[in-house]
Nucleic acid binder design. Structure first.
Length: 591
RNA sequence: GCGCCCUUAGCUCAGUUGGAUAGAGCAACAGCCUUCUAAGCUGUUGGCCGCUGGUUCGAGUCCAGCAGGGCGCGCCA
């Protein structure tokens, strides 16, 4: 169900324009917009129609604007006037804004839903951290952005699946197996030193963090010393490797699932890289590309301008990514014959496509930016559609000082640390107060501050104030009168104060905000909208400090009180609706 | 060296996809409030939108070049 007064106004403008210019080209009509007025003096909304159509009409934009302004009033539009270089400013009947309040109360948090997605099956993949340890703050932004984006798209009518790609094949989880095996020998009381052990690990011992000691202990409990070699040394890999790897990966996945739950992220599906590989899907996908003539044996040029020290020309299995817009063709097999990560990733995206994803959106860290063109090329070759949202690095600050994050020094912050410190809702909100592709500073002190410059607090506080008023109203008028259904029926004619009208205008722009944010794949816009909405509400609240007659609850004026309660209830609904997109729980009161 | 992203008030950031006189918060300054609608309110100051050119009725927004910051750059995921 779509309801957006700006869309309705646009339809009215197009109709009026069509009466003036009957043969208006479609392409011109498509550029006509109706946007909220930036300034009070400009009315409630403005359209660029006259400027856009001027050329096709061979008329001066101002002249056309005057004709349009004369033709427009009617319906919601009380008044229209030409302005500036050819805008037409629209003033709505106040009743139209009040009707919007009533509508919010009738449909609840479904207000703002729309159908621009048209039910398109859409797979949003995010987090996808390697299952080699607990989540750290580096994963957090992608998790929040991906989750909010998925919620946003669902609200906008896309049929969304939230997916996590488990990289449980490849070198990283092999390294995890070795690290877990070390903790296992340690639990058994091996006499090997860590360095002696590390010397026997292909590629060196990684993942030395404490978090694997428990895994080592559990392996000992489960297997005794049967996985160890004589004298508690390293046994041949075929005796232990696969079992330890599988166990460690599953433990790490459990930890990640716990972290995700603590962050309030729940996936619909977890896709396993290993099971794709083992099912033969990777070879099948490569075979399919090969049949399409997109695979060949070839030698790549060295990267332009910077030849690595050990560069030597080598024949490789290459995918013709250049046919689909990439700069160079990309390798699918390593020199030892195994597949590259890219090859597996192609098969993974083919699998998503096979499962029905008409649109795939991957949320990645910015350090994978260079990988985007080849993945899009591969998906294009498979006949699919892939978009990638990149998230820039987050720098965590404590009181303005950077918190150093170094795995080696053991001072890296886990996601859990951050959640314990700041709280889930504040973390999620704060992560959405920047555009995803802009670098972000996350100030822990600010995120927990109870002041206006903390948007998370400011918005929650607005909601709590709404609820507080409604609780007080129940005392005064009884629960029946204050129910949303009852408030939807009250007369709203007394809502006419400039601050009340401003708040109503803001509420009415929620649907178009949702639609625009969804189209742009920019969930942070929801956070900014809520901040502005909260500001409008707090302003209205503060009016009551100066003038008791402007308070929400005025005992001897029941009609005005009920109308204001309707506005307050509608405000709370829209805040809740926005917070739901962000995955933040609204609070009933501040403590 | 090449590619991608970024550069907006002293600071942190928006900017409705090319529209009107570029906006918030913080900080600064000036007032107000001493309250229970707690965790302030109102106002003022502050701008070469990194720089230079281009596209057009119109550019913070699009294009080219330059400068600075970040990320990446054949068998790591």
């Amino acid at each position: 169900m779509t309801h957006d007064i700006f869309a309705e106004l646009r339809a009215a403008v197009l109709a009026a324009l069509g009466r003036i210019l009957p043969d208006l080209p479609e392409a011109v009509a498509a550029r006509v917009e109706v946007t909220p007025a930036r300034e009070e003096a400009h009315g409630d909304a403005a359209t660029n129609a006259a400027m856009v159509a001027a050329k096709a009409a061979r008329r001066n934009p101002r002249e056309l604007a005057a004709l349009l302004a004369a033709a427009l009033p009617g319906g919601m539009i009380a008044h229209a006037e030409p302005a500036g270089p050819g805008f037409v400013n629209l003033r709505l009947h106040e009743a139209a804004l009040r009707a919007e309040v009533k509508h919010v109360l009738e449909v609840g948090t479904g207000y703002g839903d729309c159908d621009i997605g048209g039910g398109l099956p859409t797979n949003v993949e995010y987090v996808s951290a390697n299952p080699t340890g607990p989540m750290h703050v580096g994963h957090c932004r992608g998790a929040v952005v991906g989750d909010a984006l998925a919620n946003l798209l669902a609200k906008a009518g896309f049929a969304v699946t939230k997916e996590y790609y488990v990289n449980d094949a490849g070198a990283q989880v092999d390294a995890l197996a070795w690290a877990a095996y070390w903790r296992y020998l340690e639990a058994l009381g091996t006499t090997l030193s860590e360095d002696e052990f590390a010397a026997r690990v292909p590629g060196g011992l990684q993942y030395r963090g404490e978090y694997l000691t428990a895994v080592g202990g559990t392996l000992k409990d489960r297997f005794g010393d049967t996985l160890a070699g004589p004298g508690l040394t390293v046994a041949p890999a075929e005796r232990w490797f696969a079992a330890v790897r599988m166990f460690a990966v599953s433990r790490m996945l459990d930890a990640i699932r716990d972290d995700l739950a603590a962050l309030g992220v729940r996936f619909d599906t977890f896709a396993s890289e290993r099971s794709l590989v083992e099912s033969g899907a990777v070879d099948a996908t490569i075979g399919r590309l090969e049949a399409d003539g997109l695979i060949y044996q070839g030698v790549l040029e060295p990267p332009r301008g910077r030849t690595p020290e050990d560069w030597e020309p080598r024949a490789q299995t290459l995918f013709r990514a250049t046919r689909f817009g990439d700069d160079v063709d990309r390798p699918l097999r390593k020199s030892d014959g195994s597949n590259t990560y890219f090859a597996n990733d192609i098969a993974y995206h083919a699998d998503k496509l096979r499962r029905g994803a008409a649109l795939m959106i991957d949320v990645w860290g910015a350090d994978h930016g260079g990988y985007v063109p080849r993945m899009q090329a591969a998906v294009a070759a498979l006949g699919g559609r892939l978009e990638v949202v990149l998230c820039q690095i987050v720098h965590v600050l404590q009181d303005g000082q950077p918190v150093r994050m170094s795995k080696r020094a053991g001072t890296f912050i886990t996601l859990r640390d951050l959640l314990d410190e700041v709280g889930r809702d504040a973390v999620r909100f704060t992560m959405l107060t920047r555009k995803a592709d802009a670098q972000m500073e996350f100030d822990i002190a600010l995120a927990v501050a109870q002041t206006r410059d903390n948007p998370a607090f400011y918005v929650q506080y607005a909601h709590a104030r709404c609820r507080s008023v409604l609780r007080a109203a129940v005392e005064m008028l009884g629960a029946g009168a204050v129910a949303e259904g009852a408030l939807a029926a009250v007369a709203l004619d007394t809502l006419a104060d400039p601050a009340e009208l401003a708040l109503m205008r803001r509420l009415a722009s929620w649907p178009r905000t949702v639609a625009a944010a969804a189209v742009a794949r920019e969930p942070h816009r929801i956070a900014f909208f809520l901040y502005d909405l909260a500001a409008d509400f707090h302003m209205l609240w503060n009016r009551g400090k100066d003038d008791a007659a402007l308070r929400f609850l005025v005992a001897d004026r029941p009609a005005e009180t009920l109308a204001r309660l309707a506005l307050v209830a509608a405000t709370a609904i829209v805040i809740r609706s926005g917070l739901a997109v962000m995955g933040v729980d609204p609070v009933e009161e501040m403590r």
